[in-house]
């Protein structure tokens, strides 16, 4: 049975009427057309579908949309408009952190939620922060480097 659900998505209010058990991932991708949120596994293991909900990283494939009533959600589509994103994008390019790119939006989200609370993370903190984001191309070191570069260049930004 459908229910009305309200939340804030990328700074804009959203009101939808749908089955509250549907996955947030499907709402974002299918109902709202936000295809930057990727489905890599559908069971919360790979982090490709990561979004920010109330300032924290969450895998949208295991979130029932009925549970995000009143929440504030940021997806890569909202985040990519920020200065912080631009810096992360440049730093990732500089570090060679992007190969096939399927995991990248999720990892950018993980980087943002890390830098937000820890603007100068050490290597361990970076590895912890992206430990729920699988990448099969890079072996991670170049991603870790990308986040380090962003942190160094982004003094005062986070």
């Amino acid at each position: 049975m459908k229910k009305e659900i309200n939340f804030v998505l990328n700074k804009k209010g959203v009101n939808i009427t749908t089955d509250p058990l549907r996955r947030l991932l499907d709402i974002l991708r299918e109902d709202l057309g936000l295809k930057g949120v990727k489905e890599g596994c559908g069971e919360g293991e790979c982090g490709s579908c990561a979004v920010i909900i109330n300032n924290r990283i969450v895998n949208s494939c295991i979130v029932a949309v009925g549970t995000v009533e009143g929440a504030e959600i940021i997806t890569i589509e909202g985040y990519r408009k920020t200065k912080q994103y631009k810096l992360l994008e440049d730093s990732f390019a500089e570090a060679g952190a992007v190969q096939c790119g399927f995991c990248t939006p999720g990892i950018i989200i993980a980087a943002e939620t890390l830098l937000r609370i820890n603007p100068e993370p050490n290597e361990n903190a970076i590895r912890d922060a992206i430990s729920g984001n699988l990448c099969r191309c890079t072996g991670y070191n170049m991603i870790v480097e990308g986040i380090k570069i962003a942190s160094q260049k982004g003094k005062g930004l986070w």
Binding site: L21, R23, E30, G42, E43, G44, V63, A64, T67
Partner: peptide, 22 residues
């Protein structure tokens, strides 16, 4: 009872695009 749903959403899953089934 459905708290975080991290396990239930996986247990009930069927196919991408479909709501999980319980």
């Amino acid at each position: 009872p459905f708290a975080g749903g991290t396990d239930l959403m996986v247990k009930g899953r069927r196919w991408s695009g479909l709501a999980p089934h319980f």
